[in-house]
Amino acid sequence: MKALDWLGRVMLLVLSGFATLSLIGAIAQVADTAADRALSPSPPTVERTGREALSPLEMPPPEQARDPAIGENMAVAPGSQPHADEAVARWLQALVYAVMALAGFVAAGVIVLLRITATLSRIAER
């Protein structure tokens, strides 16, 4: 075999391994994110607006209720959730792994196509 054939085979093996490991990493990140959500379920939130939508126990303090920046028909938003940023970061990491896997599979496919065309050109020369 020629050195170029061996180089093509090694590149195909490396790219396929890289793509497979990236795909496994994406699946692991998605599974980890889903497991965290299952372990710490948050109660469903219903978006309500207006003062009449709030029960007497949920009424905002008078200083917040009369704040002109909030507005008459707007409910006071709770503080941001620190877990939301972590969940978004995990999903983005899973997406990066998935894109890397797709790029690896496409590159391996290009190498296979180049090898097929090289083989077909050798056959055509005969």
Rank of each mutant, 00 (worst) to 15 (best):
G104L: 01
A118C: 00
A87F: 07
L54T: 06
I116A: 10
P60T: 04
E72S: 05
G25W: 06
E58I: 01
Q29M: 02
A28P: 00
L15D: 03
V10C: 09
R122Q: 14
Q64H: 04
R66Y: 10
N73A: 04
A75W: 03
L57M: 14
V88K: 05
V110Y: 13
A77W: 11
L21I: 06
R122P: 02
V46Y: 08
Y97I: 00
H83E: 15
I24W: 02
E125S: 06
E52K: 10
G71K: 01
V106P: 01
A65K: 02
E125D: 12
W6R: 15
E58A: 11
E72P: 01
L57I: 06
A84T: 12
R122I: 08
D5E: 15
G25Y: 03
G25F: 06
L4C: 07
Y97G: 01
Q93I: 00
A19W: 07
G109F: 04
L21K: 03
A118N: 10
S121W: 08
D36I: 02
A75E: 09
E52V: 05
F105D: 03
S42F: 01
S16N: 08
F18G: 08
A69D: 14
S42L: 14
F18A: 09
M100F: 11
A19L: 07
A34I: 12
P78D: 13
D67K: 05
R9P: 00
A98Y: 03
P78S: 06
G25S: 15
R115L: 04
V99D: 05
S40R: 14
E47S: 11
R9L: 12
I123V: 15
V112Q: 09
A3T: 08
P60Q: 02
A89K: 13
L7H: 13
A28Q: 07
A69H: 11
L23T: 09
M1H: 13
V30Y: 05
E125W: 01
D67F: 02
A87H: 11
A87Q: 09
T117P: 00
L7G: 09
R66K: 07
A108L: 03
Q29G: 12
R37D: 09
S55W: 05
A38S: 13
A107I: 06
R9C: 02
P68K: 03
V14C: 11
T45I: 12
K2T: 14
L21A: 15
L102W: 08
S16F: 04
E47T: 09
V110W: 07
T45C: 05
A103F: 14
L95Y: 02
L15G: 02
D32K: 10
L95I: 10
E63V: 05
M11W: 05
D5S: 13
A34F: 05
D5Q: 15
R122A: 15
M100I: 14
D36E: 14
T119N: 06
V46A: 04
I24C: 00
H83P: 00
P78Q: 15
A31Q: 14
D67L: 06
L12V: 01
H83L: 07
A31Y: 12
A65V: 05
A75V: 03
L95M: 07
D67S: 06
L12A: 11
D36W: 11
G50N: 02
V10T: 10
L120R: 13
M74L: 12
A31C: 10
L21W: 15
P44L: 07
L12E: 08
L114N: 14
L102S: 08
T119V: 10
D36N: 15
V110A: 15
L13I: 05
I123A: 14
